[in-house]
């Protein structure tokens, strides 16, 4: 009889454990776990930096253009490729300076907007590289003892690398057309100094004499109407 008592007690214990387990896993008492959605390709935007057109008014010695392609991943991350060309012909009393070259930037933007995810407010970073050549002529070195003479500094090609951090906005003001603005900080990484003479302006980076350059971009983008509802 005592044996049956023990078996009955054991069965009751097991049943109570099972019941406890059922209560503990009752999903109605807990918030559902968030499912991390994989990044989904949402589209491509093509952009033109219209800010560079202001050079015609404010920096007539410079001619430059810049464009971009960005790849939208779930409206949250944007892979960005930017490229452009810059040419400077500076004629001063004591020197003439010419430079021309291309620049390329690769990086990522992070969208902090959650309510209107097709627009953009966020931060980005880029790695930039410029390939360019520059030269100077009619360089007048004037000294009170040495007779003033002009000299020519031969053309030289070289590369510069920099990191760029941006904070900006983009909004869809017309169907598939976005306007955007961003503030930039460019930090020189390598190649800014030339062994022969320093560049006045490095395409895409800005003033060659500075380690850090500040700037702004004004872009118009066209969203390729792909995968859009």
């Amino acid at each position: 009889m005592a044996r049956f008592k023990y078996i009955f007690s054991l069965i009751l214990t097991l049943i109570s454990f099972c019941s406890f387990g059922q209560v503990a896993t009752d999903s109605s008492l807990y918030a559902p776990a968030k499912v991390k959605e994989p990044l989904v390709f949402k589209g491509v935007k093509l952009g033109v930096n219209v800010g560079r057109f202001s050079d015609y008014l404010f920096k007539p010695e410079r001619f430059s253009y810049e464009g971009s392609v960005d790849f939208n991943l779930s409206h949250k991350f944007f892979g960005v490729i930017e490229a452009g060309y810059s040419e400077i012909a500076l004629e001063e009393e004591n020197y003439n300076y010419n430079s021309e070259g291309y620049f390329y930037k690769v990086g990522m933007d992070y969208n902090m907007l959650k309510k209107h995810p097709t627009d953009y407010l966020g931060m980005g970073f880029r790695l930039g590289r410029a390939d360019f050549s520059h030269s100077a002529n009619n360089v007048l070195i004037d000294d009170q003892h040495w007779n003033a003479e002009t000299l020519t500094i031969d053309s030289k090609s070289y590369n510069t690398y920099w990191l760029e951090v941006s904070f900006g906005i983009k909004g869809e003001l017309l169907k598939n057309v976005y306007f955007g603005w961003s503030a930039l900080v460019r930090i020189s990484v390598a190649g800014r100094k030339d062994g022969q003479f320093q560049a006045i302006d490095i395409p895409g980076f800005g003033k060659g004499e500075n380690n850090i350059n500040l700037g702004a971009n004004y872009y118009i983008y066209y969203q390729i109407p792909f995968n859009r509802k």
């Binding site: 001063e92 020197y95 007048l140 070195i141 003479f197």
Partner: peptide
């Protein structure tokens, strides 16, 4: 060699 000093001063040796 020569360094670009400023737009007004040009290059310096």
């Amino acid at each position: 060699d020569y360094t670009f000093f400023s737009q007004e001063c040009g290059f310096v040796p």
